[in-house]
Design a protein around this nucleic acid. Structure first.
Lengths: 214, 214
DNA sequence: TAGATTGTTAATCGATTAACAATC
DNA sequence: TAGATTGTTAATCGATTAACAATC
């Protein structure tokens, strides 16, 4: 049973946890919403409201007990329980993600990667086997895989996505610029590089125009 | 002179352009907001309003002229004019980004990468030189670099960010989980993997609970 | 003309911020 | 007690959606 929280709040929770983890061990036992807000450039009231949602009890004048809050965040974000995932497309980006150790901390465990290229398949990366694409269906069903990570060329993304869904995947992490069409009960989360670049270059234009350099 | 448009609209514009580009050349000359909306799983009115902002004139009954709309989107997103950038941290992810050809299409040109590791420095990736960190300041100032991409370990991110800003960088693309504190006129755009994972695992939990598998 | 599609004005919705009462 | 900090209720803000008039 999980209470529903605002999407924007959910996005911020990992940052709170990251902040708490980054603090030195020897520090104070307590932490206030104001401290967190200042460190993350957020509003104090917003932080307090977010924390209230995951119901880590804070106390007036004192704040939150650091370790308790960490625990509550980890529990709420499901970092204690590990989700198995597969990755499709063992190109440069795919292999970079395979070799990233940080995902384990977030409760993500990539058990295998797949690639249509026979040269890539058969090798392994960071101890994770890279297998030929034909083996995907069997492995996903056998291991009850629910998360699929797509790092193939954009043109192949929809097809790969459909295959993953057919194998029982319920959540897709998309690193391609393609929009993926899926059934309603499937979640696609796209790492939207083009949108990021649009924001960066827009900001630049504003700043440089203001300086009269353009 | 750039009119200000809503942030959410700006995020969607690249998707519209991507859709238009993905369409076969031989197709119809016109495209309607409804078609785009259907293809990208968005609301028709929302698409129409977004397109109205970049003022590509659409005509009732007919829609937009495909090529004109592409041109307007590319102009507005600044894809015609190229921004030079440097990348700091030539690890696996950094090198994967260096070797990604797609950025050119988005008007981003990575001119050099930097790494403190002497073994990494001196080599090159995809024709882009990887230089020792000491050369960063000089090159950025000499080439008037305004965009910095950070792919170093999280612990070094803030320091690298500060150096970049000191060298004149105005927009930072952050691939680490660290929150970066910057002056007000600097834009940081973080590729927030932890937030993405939180959403994926939250979705999974909801779906699996509903099925009684938990 | 009739129907499809546009652009705009008004209504709704969700998230952020402000105000304030509660309490350690 | 006084001051700091919490949680909650109300106000504001921005974005989405609905309604509708305009037009090819």
């Amino acid at each position: 049973m999980t209470q529903s929280i605002p999407l924007q709040t959910l996005k911020r929770l990992p940052a709170y946890l990251q902040y708490l983890k980054s603090q030195p061990k020897g520090g104070a036992d307590n932490v206030s919403a104001g401290q967190i807000a200042a460190a993350l450039s957020l509003g104090e009231i917003q932080v307090r409201k977010d924390l209230a949602m995951i119901s880590a009890k804070g106390r007036p004048k004192i704040g939150y007990i650091r370790e308790d809050l960490k625990g509550d965040l980890e529990f709420f974000l499901g970092y204690s329980q590990v989700d198995d995932a597969v990755l499709v497309g063992a190109g440069r980006l795919g292999r970079a993600l395979l070799s990233y150790e940080g995902f384990k901390e977030y409760g993500l465990n990539i058990v295998a990667a797949f690639d249509t290229d026979a040269r890539a398949a058969g090798r392994e990366e960071n101890g994770i086997p890279i297998l030929p694409a034909e083996k995907m269906g069997g492995l996903c069903r056998r291991m009850n895989i629910r998360i699929g990570i797509i790092t193939v060329p954009a043109a192949a993304a929809q097809e790969v996505c459909d295959s993953l869904v057919a194998c029982g995947v319920l959540a897709v992490w998309n690193f391609t610029p393609s929009h993926l069409r899926v059934a309603e009960h499937i979640l696609v989360r796209s790492e939207n590089m083009a949108a990021s670049l649009a924001m960066l270059s827009r900001h630049l234009e504003e700043k440089l125009c203001a300086r009269g350099q353009k």
